[in-house]
Design a protein around this nucleic acid. Sequence first.
DNA 1: TTGTAGGCGTTATCAT
DNA 2: ATGATAACGCCTACAA
Lengths: 339, 339
Amino acid sequence: MKKDVINIYDIAEMAKVSIATVSRVVNGSDKVSEKTRKKVMAVIEEVGYTPNVFAQGLGLNTMHTVGILVPTISDIYMSNAVYYLQEKLRTYGYDCILGCSGFELEGKQRHVNMLLSKHVDALILVGSTYAGNGEHVQDTDYIREAAQNVPVCVVNGNVLGENIYCTVNDDVKAVYDATSKLIEYGHERILYLTDSQSYSAIKKRKGYEQALEDRDIPVRPELEMHVVNHMHAVRDQLLECKVAFDAVVASNDEIAVGALKYAFKKELLVPEQLSIVGYNNSSVAIACEPELTSIDNHVVDMCYRTVERLISVIENKETDLEHKVVIACDLISRGTTEF
Amino acid sequence: MKKDVINIYDIAEMAKVSIATVSRVVNGSDKVSEKTRKKVMAVIEEVGYTPNVFAQGLGLNTMHTVGILVPTISDIYMSNAVYYLQEKLRTYGYDCILGCSGFELEGKQRHVNMLLSKHVDALILVGSTYAGNGEHVQDTDYIREAAQNVPVCVVNGNVLGENIYCTVNDDVKAVYDATSKLIEYGHERILYLTDSQSYSAIKKRKGYEQALEDRDIPVRPELEMHVVNHMHAVRDQLLECKVAFDAVVASNDEIAVGALKYAFKKELLVPEQLSIVGYNNSSVAIACEPELTSIDNHVVDMCYRTVERLISVIENKETDLEHKVVIACDLISRGTTEF
DNA sequence: TTGTAGGCGTTATCAT
DNA sequence: ATGATAACGCCTACAA
């Protein structure tokens, strides 16, 4: 079944040169006469020779591969990010190897080690879940440890440490602006809904609270609700709770759609009686009716910037890059708000 | 920056044994005395030694890795599939390396070769785009070629060839049943919407046509529309077209939601004046209102079965497996149909 | 410009 | 049960 694999010796023999010469041709060395190069290339093309990556890796200790880790790929945000990351990496000649770590520390550590053991040239962690919640700094120690071996990038999270490069959204400002708009339009009882305590969730809440404080509106704890990340669950939770509210800021679009379903059930007019702002500007934001006003976090930019910086670290060994780059967000206005 | 990597010689020296013994311990050979094993393990644990995968690969020509190829990961169906595939593969000790090939032949070929050049132990192609459209059989030649090196699995597509294993949905039956139901409920002018000519799209249309024919309802070409896979595009296309219809069967949920948006714009009552059936039972199906009746293709089952069969091929070298396994679909009834 | 030879870290086949 | 040693396929000084 298996095709017999041909190696550098075969090529050398067929082209009547030494393996060193073949190697030079393959690696584009300029110390080869044009004539020999042509001769060798002809043979290579003819038999379709590809260098054995293991042997290459053994000597060079690299495979031109970067490891991408996400908590779960089964999430629109993550899968988009992975798509753009790998697309950009390809243009630089890097392939990627994927890991889904789950949200628990143990899984994260195991997967980081798995990727490191494959000798990836770098590690990209996608999602603020990798940034811990700021309370237990030691929860991100495994990242700093990994960074001793290869450069580590964190997309949408901030982790301090040498050889770690972060790209984050300006979540505080985005939510601050959205909340401010809601206040401008007369809303005072604004509900903040989130499903996590991650780095970015915390920043979003901060933006929410700051907007209220700046307008001297009290921040009420009962208006900061923790929910399960599922549309129906959010809807039901809202139906059961007794607090009054006239607007919702959600930490992702699914949650926001859950709020929309709540309004539908209660026969509230949207946006007149209930305004809703989502986050991520994903496809569910336009699947619903009215369509969701949502904050676009520019995943494409984030990913491209991340890869560009990473490449400059890998190839130029630049180590004095800014450790954190901030990407602005956009408010995309649709039918669930008056603005 | 880089930690000095320790190797099998270091361990051997520290444990005062030969590298052969260390290798045996690492690989769980039973030809090692309990005493030596303990001694060696102690050293390994202490310094945290992991075998170099390149060196291992060089000798064994495998990395316990399978390549997963999708046209794009930025698609709910694909990202879910990848998630379940890699999850299941992990339980068998295999990691995965991901490629996004796009929908063009050239990209597919390039990525298959890329994955093969990494010496993956197997290849999994996700999506009926890899099955070609049945017209140009030679378009799948590169898959048969790849199958000469490693087993190839196709999820949701059928490709003939030795060492190729396919898992497909019973799309014909699923759409046949859904269409039949619509007919039972009095619909006669049923629109079939699709965005592709892939293997599975063709099967869906076949189910649609057969259901009509079996009830002596003529199959009208103008009721089989090709659309762009985007909700708004579908809505607009329907708004412009002049054919009358009272039901829609779509080849995925996004398209179905597009039809729903059309109904909303035209102020049609759903499901009374327009019934809609989607496909994939994805998250957009429950984001809209009324929620979408959709055909669930049991991605989880598909993926698990695929991996199980693959493993039995890899590990037991079983080659007499059925080349095609069919997984049934379920009709999930929601608000866009009367049933 | 080209060739020779040593090394990369394992695994596996021999002896012992 | 253990150890010595030859592959595995490539890269790269160093020699010619």
